[in-house]
Amino acid sequence: MTWAAFETLLTGAGTTVALSLAGLAIGVPLGLALALIRWARIPVADQLVATYVSLVRATPLLTFVLFVFFVLPTMGLELDPVPAAIVTLALNTAPFNCEIWRAGLTNFPRDQLEAAEACGMTRTLAFRRIVAPQLWRVCLGPLVSEMTILLKATPAVAVIGVVEITRAASRIGAATYDPLPPFLAATVIYTLLIAVIVQAQRVIEALIARRYGYAAP
């Protein structure tokens, strides 16, 4: 494997990371919004969100990205491959994040909410002051797991021509007729990326545990 090939892989890695981050930046808050709709049991919207979650959780990312890339233009929304990939990743990760946030909300200690209620807090105020500051800490672990799943799911967007790590590796392999070295290098890159994420999570959890005496269960 030449240095140029290696550079191609690294560029692919940059694309993978950028796509994942962009997907997360939209998908995680969107998931929270969906979870809040379900938590507050807003009629109709609650049902719509539940259906969306069930549907997307069953749809392969590859099929979803093809749908976004080919069907949205017929509805007048033309997207280039990279924006289409980001939109798909965000819409795909949002339902999973929604379920994580929702689990955090439904398992929130009841006595703390009652104490807030007894002090005269409204539901909104209790959410803002008591629930929200603790919720993200409880959800951190599952959210990070979902993050690594998203990272590992990004190769699916290769199908609409986005060149990320896996696609880059297969291109190098096809050009050199020697596919194993680039695949091995890609494996190392993925392992490093995931190790970094998991390590970051451990550090954050340790900080939380030291300060507040508890972390994600």
Binding site: P109, D111, Q112, G120, Q134, G213
Partner: peptide, 18 residues
């Protein structure tokens, strides 16, 4: 919420906000 501010409560399991 306003009415509840006139009555305070102490809970069995403290219910402090951690």
């Amino acid at each position: 919420a306003l009415a509840r501010t006139r009555v305070s409560m102490v809970f069995q399991h403290f219910a402090l906000w951690p």
